[in-house]
Amino acid sequence: MRVFITSLLLAFTSLTVQAEVSIFACEPEWASLSQELGGDKVTSYSATTGLQDPHYIQARPSLIAKARRADLLVCTGAELEEGWLPLLQRKSGNADIQVGAAGYFMATDFVQLTGVPSQLDRSQGHIHAAGNPHIQTSPVMVLAVAKALTSRLQQLDNANQAYYQQRWLDFEQRWQAAMTTWQQQAKPLIGMPIVVQHDNWDYLISWLQLEKVGRLEAKPGVPPTVQDLSNVVKQLKVTPAKFVIHAAYQSPRASNWLVEQTSIDKRVLPFTVGGNDAATDLFSLFDNTLSLLLETTK
């Protein structure tokens, strides 16, 4: 009888109050992390896919509808979404996700960014004043964000504090074990010279201790000119690199050109969850990234 009443009560409360925290993630890595940490107490939606450039997203109708019903925004921040997120916040008419509200969570607010430009001038390309925002390429950063996100979930959903704590401990343990494995696997990569297409790999590079010897985009966000590319070719003659990497969402044109010119190897990395078929969650994202990077050294 008591079970019956309890379940009835539960059914009733789930009707009256929203049982799950509705999370609007700007990028798939944060949707995946939210799901890891929130389990069945949250629903997470990703505004973008792993095959879209997160700088250039349309503030489209479906996103306004999602933002209007969201309890929590989980985004990268550091101006990555400045072209579309502020508009969604304003159009949503949703007080919970405005700047400074508990439902406004920007991952880059909780880690120290690198690559803060010493000169803020648009002639230098599409630079981010707050620093390089592409933190999800390092599992170390992901862990720091996960911890902060856990406290935010606990703050928002008081009733399930213990649940989130337990999910966090579980995640932390699994993540650290995975990191140990990745680190072990990545030993042959230490000091490996590489070329990047766009500066969105800085955190991966410092985590794996790779060496960036060149960049195809002379200025971030500006498609490289023939001159820029031939400069890279010249540079590679002096300091050869093992391979060039670019994200799945980026145009392969520049990298392909370099491959043709210098017979350098090319690696298309998933960059985020959903960047390729193998990267289905955060764990497989790094599994896959590492196996792609290691392929060349076999």
Binding site: G77, A78, E79, E82, V99, G100, Y104, M106, T108, D109, F110, V111, Q112, L113, A130, V140, M141, L143, A144, Q176, M179, T180, Q183, Q184, W207
Partner: peptide
């Protein structure tokens, strides 16, 4: 052996300094 490896990971994690304070307004 495992402990030293975990320590390495933890050291790395510790190296990620928390931002001075969440700079929320941009």
């Amino acid at each position: 052996h495992t402990e030293t490896k975990t320590q390495q990971v933890q050291q790395q994690v510790a190296q990620v300094k928390a931002a001075p304070s969440p700079v929320v307004a941009q």
